[in-house]
Design a protein around this nucleic acid. Structure first.
Lengths: 223, 223, 223, 223
DNA sequence: AATGAATGAGTTTTCATTCAT
DNA sequence: AATGAATGAAAACTCATTCAT
C-alpha cells in the first residue's frame, strides 16, 4: 500500500556509485519509484471506489500530476492490467514459496483462505476481473499462477490430503468465485469461513472428510 | 439532412401536443408494458456491455425515448435495483416451485447449476452485484431468496442428501461466487461443472460422497 | 449554466414564452435551428482561428452547451466534414444557377473570382481541406461541384470564350489552389486579381487572349 | 574557425548521433549536427502528419531527447519557422543557380513545376504556410525568394518567352497556390501538369501561346 | 549539452439527468 | 405519458514546456 521498493539492487546495496552518492530523487531512477507509487495508489483507489474510479483520483493519491500517470500507463486499461498482473504475480510468488515449505494441504487451504480474505478487503482484483477487457489481457499471468498451484496441489494429493481428481483449474475457479463473493458487504468473516470449509471438504478425499464444520474464525484448513 | 428519426411504434401526428392535462390517450396498461420493455432492454444491455453501459443504450434497445426511461426509473441506480429485484424474484419463484416437486437434493443441485449456467450467459446479475450500491439496496430480495432456499435445503437434509450443518447462507454464497466466476471467458462449461461437482460433494453428508467426479456435461447433481 | 438564448426573436422581451404561433423556440423543430447555429458558429470560429480551434469555442459562439454540439456531430471531424459539405454544396448551387444565366464565360470567371475572394475572408474551406482526413470524406461533394462546373465550362467553350481542351478538373484545381493562396496575409486583393487574370488568359482560346492585364480591382473576367 | 576536434569526426558511420556513451565530450560540431537532425526530422514528421504533429514525435524521429529539441528551438513555432526558412532558402538558392544558366523561361517553368511536384510529396511548406503565425514571421525569407525570381523572370521576359506585364509576386502566388492544391490526394501527376500548362500559357506573351496542351507527363515548360 | 521525467492546462468526448413541448 | 433536445460536470487523454540531474 505504501511505496514499495525498486527491485533492482535493493536499497541497502549502494554498489555501483552514481554521480551523487545516494540522493537520487526525482528523475531518472525515480521514474521507477513513481511507477510503484502509481500502482500503489491505483490499488488503494480501485479497492475503495471500484474499477470505475477516475484516473485523476489515482494521480491525486499518488501525489503526481495526471500527465505522469498517463505517461507511465498510456490508458486507464493499461494501468489496470499492470495492477492485475502485479497482484497475480504476488500470489504466484506466494504459492511458489509455499511449495517447498511444510505440510502441503495446510499450505493450500491456507493460501486459498488468505486470498479470499484479502479480496474481502481490497476488492481490486475482483472488481477488475469483472471488466472483461482486463481479464483477457492478463491471461498469461493467470497461467503462471496456475502453474504454481499445480505443484502445491500435486504435493497435497501425494500426501493424501486432497482428492486425486482435483485440478489446478478448479482450484483457481474456486478462488476466483469466492473472491468475487467476498466483496459483498453481507458476507461476514464467519460466513466466508464456513463456506470455504464446505469447499475444502469437497476437495478432500473420501476418507479425510470433516463430519462437522469448525467454529467461526477457523476455516478448518488443517489437513 | 436532419436527425429526427421516428421510432417504429410512434404515434405520428406531432401536432397534438397540449401541455395541459387533457387528452389521456393511453391508459396505464401502456405504461405497464413500457416498464417491462425497459427492464427487458436493461437486462440485455447490461448483460452485453456490463453495468456501466449507458442509459441511452437501454432506451434505444427498448425503442423508447430516454425521458420515458427516466420517468419510470428516476435514476440509473433505481433501474438497476429494479432489475436485480426482478431477477432475484425470478429465482425465488423458481426455488419455491421446486420445493414441492420431486427429490429435493436433485432440485437443489440442479437449481444451483442452472443459476451458474445462466450467469455464464448473462453477466447481468453478477455485474450488478459488484456495484455495492446496488447490492445493499436489494438485501430484502436476497432475504426472500434465502427463505425459499431454506425450505429446499431443509428437505434435502431430511432426505439425507445434504449434510446437516449446511446453511442457506452458505448456499447463496456458493451460488454468488460461482456466478461471478462464470463470467470469465476462460471458464468453459466443462470447468464450471467439474468445479460445481466438487462443491456439491462438499455439501453432501459424510457417507454420500462421490469418490470420483462425473464426465463433462453432467455436474453430478443427482443425490 | 447559461440557458440557450433565443436568437431569432430579437433581444429583450423576456416575459412569457408562448408555446405556439410565432416562433417555435427550443425543442423539436429547433434542433434544426441549432444544427444551423452550430454550423454557422463553426464556420466563423474555424475561419478565425483555423481548423484546430476548439470545439468548446464553437459551442460558446453558438451559445449552446458543449454536449449539444457533440450530440449533433459526434466528433469534431464530423462537424468539420458537415461544414465542408455545406460550403461545397453552396458553391454547387451557385454554379448551377449560373449555368442558365447570361454569358457563360463571364459567369465562369466571375464565379472563380468570387470563390477566391470568399476564401480570402473565410479561410474555413481551405483550412479544412488541408486536414487530410476531412478532404477524403468529402470527395462526393466535390464531385457534385465538378459536375456543375462541367456544364458551365462546356457552354463557355461552345461560346468560344474558353479553350476547347480545358477540363472541369483543371478548373477545380485552379480554384482550390488559389483559395489556399488567398489565405496569406501578404496577398492583397490586387495581387489576387492580377494573378487570376493571368490564369484566365491561360484558359482563353488562342485568339481571345488579353494582351495586357486589367487595372487593380477588375480581374478581367469579361469574355 | 572551429577547433578541430578529435573524436566526433572519427572513423565509422557518420550519421549516428545517438546520445550514447558518456566519456566523449561533444563540442559545438555536435550541436550543429543535432540541429540539422532535428530539422530533418521535423520536415519528415510535419510532412507526414501535418503541422500539428507533436514535438515529441519530432524528437523521436531525430532520435534525440525532447529537451534537446527545445534547447535548439525554444518553442514549437520557432522550430517551424526555422524549417520554413530553410525550405525557402533552398528554393532561393535553386533560383539563383538557374538565373545564370541556359534558357530562362525553360528554367522558370521548370522551377515552378519542380516546386509543385515536391509539394505534392512533402506537404510541409504548405501545411506550415496555412498557419498564419508562421508565415508572417518568415516574410523576409519570402522576400529573398522573390528577389531571386525577379531576375529569372526579367530574363525570361527579355527573351520574349514571358509576357511583359507578369510580376514576381504573381509567380509566387501561382507557386504557392499550386503547392497547396498539390496536397490533395485526388490530384494526380497528370492533373497537376495539365493545370500547370494552362497557367504557363497564361504567362506567355500573346504570340507564344500553345494552342493545345501537352500529353501527360510533360507540362509544356519549354519556352 | 543532453537527457527524459514531470507538469498541468487544455481538448475531446461521454452520460446521467432535466425540461419544454 | 411520452418525447428527445439540451445541459454541463466529469472523465480520458494530449502536448508544449520546464527542470533537476
Amino acid at each position: 500500500m505504501t511505496l514499495p521498493n525498486p527491485s533492482p539492487g535493493g536499497p541497502g546495496v549502494p554498489g555501483t556509485a552514481r554521480p551523487s552518492s545516494q540522493g537520487a530523487r526525482r528523475p531518472r531512477a525515480d521514474a521507477q519509484r513513481n511507477r510503484a507509487r502509481i500502482l500503489a495508489a491505483a490499488e488503494a483507489v480501485f479497492a475503495e471506489k471500484g474499477p470505475s474510479a477516475s484516473t485523476d483520483e489515482v494521480a491525486a493519491r499518488a501525489e503526481l500530476a495526471i500527465g505522469t500517470v498517463f505517461k507511465h500507463f498510456p490508458t486507464k486499461q493499461a494501468l489496470q492490467q499492470a495492477l492485475m498482473r502485479d497482484l497475480l504475480s504476488d500470489l504466484t510468488r506466494e504459492v511458489q514459496a509455499l511449495t517447498t515449505d511444510g505440510d502441503p494441504a495446510t499450505s493450500l487451504f491456507g493460501f486459498m483462505t488468505r486470498v479470499v480474505e484479502q479480496a474481502a478487503q481490497k476488492k481490486t482484483v475482483v472488481g477488475l476481473l469483472a471488466d472483461t477487457g482486463v481479464v483477457l489481457q492478463v491471461a498469461d499471468s493467470l497461467l503462471l499462477l496456475r502453474d504454481g498451484l499445480e505443484g502445491l496441489l500435486a504435493r497435497s494429493q501425494q500426501a493424501g490430503a486432497v482428492r486425486e481428481d482435483a485440478r489446478a483449474d478448479e482450484v483457481i475457479a474456486l478462488i476466483t468465485g469466492f473472491s468475487q463473493g467476498a466483496l459483498h458487504a453481507r458476507w461476514d468473516r464467519d460466513l466466508r469461513h464456513r463456506t470455504l470449509a464446505l469447499v475444502f471438504d469437497g476437495l478432500r478425499p473420501p476418507g479425510a472428510r470433516r463430519s462437522s464444520r469448525p467454529a467461526a474464525g477457523s476455516p478448518g484448513c488443517a489437513p
